[in-house]
């Protein structure tokens, strides 16, 4: 009980004192995660949509494959990226291991399958409604894709939120490829892991509380963006 009280006190103190280290960590967390989610959306929306409206041999296998990638263990992704980026690996000369870029790459690999798989489902359902109509109107393939993506845009925000939740919360991948280096690659989750192992439970919990609050506010912001966009679009 005392620990929990201390945790809230620690969190409160960190926030009101505008602790520079804390804001650095939060800032890096946000930069890494938001970049990864943005790249994942750029890749995952068109990929999922294309998969939704295409029919070719082996499509079913690809769909199953992408869906199963949604459950990839972050440490395995981290390890794979590590192998590629380590100095002995094929991309070792890029010198990217233990940089925020490496963390963005790892999180992108984690999030893209989630965005792509959810997009495929959303677009496929919508295409069921629109397919004959669009074809009867002589719409081209890219017209069909863009119509469906545009019409599903509010549902796609939810898909990107699912990806964001995953990226913001994971610790394994960023720990392995980032290394939790103070002032360089330390993010909220790795900091929590570190403080816990040092026995600084109150500080760890305090960071945890801030992480949860952050996650809630990002979700709330995007949700209200969705509501406002809808209101604006149909005013």
């Amino acid at each position: 009980m005392q620990d929990i009280q201390a945790a809230f006190l620690a969190a409160f103190n960190l926030i009101v004192s505008l602790d520079a280290d804390l804001f650095e960590i939060v800032g890096l967390s946000l930069t890494v995660t938001l970049s990864a989610v943005a790249i994942s959306c750029l890749l995952g929306f068109p990929l999922g949509a294309l998969l939704a409206i295409s029919r070719f041999p082996g499509r079913g296998m690809i769909v199953v494959f992408i869906s199963s990638l949604m459950g990839l263990p972050p440490v395995v992704v981290g390890l794979t990226v590590y192998l590629f980026l380590s100095s002995a690996g094929p991309l070792g000369s890029w010198q990217m291991l233990y940089t925020p870029t490496a963390m963005i790459i790892a999180q992108t690999l984690l999030v893209t399958p989630i965005v792509a798989a959810l997009t495929r489902q959303i677009i496929e359902d919508l295409n069921g409604e629109y397919s004959e109509l669009l074809r009867s109107m002589s719409a081209r393939r890219r017209d069909i894709l863009s119509t469906l993506l545009w019409d599903a845009r509010y549902s796609l925000i939810t898909a990107s939120l699912a990806g964001m939740g995953r990226a913001l919360a994971e610790v394994g991948a960023v720990m392995i490829v980032g290394g939790n280096i103070n002032h360089v690659t330390r993010v909220m989750t790795t900091a929590i892991a570190l403080e816990t192992s040092k026995g600084e439970l109150a500080l760890a919990l305090g960071l945890g509380i801030i992480l949860v609050l952050l996650s809630i506010s990002i979700n709330a912001a995007l949700m209200s963006l969705r509501t406002n966009m809808e209101r604006f679009a149909y005013a």
Partner: peptide, 11 residues
């Protein structure tokens, strides 16, 4: 207007 889709580009 979407009925004109076959005539004008989608953008």
């Amino acid at each position: 207007l979407s009925g004109r889709l076959g005539y004008v580009g989608f953008w």
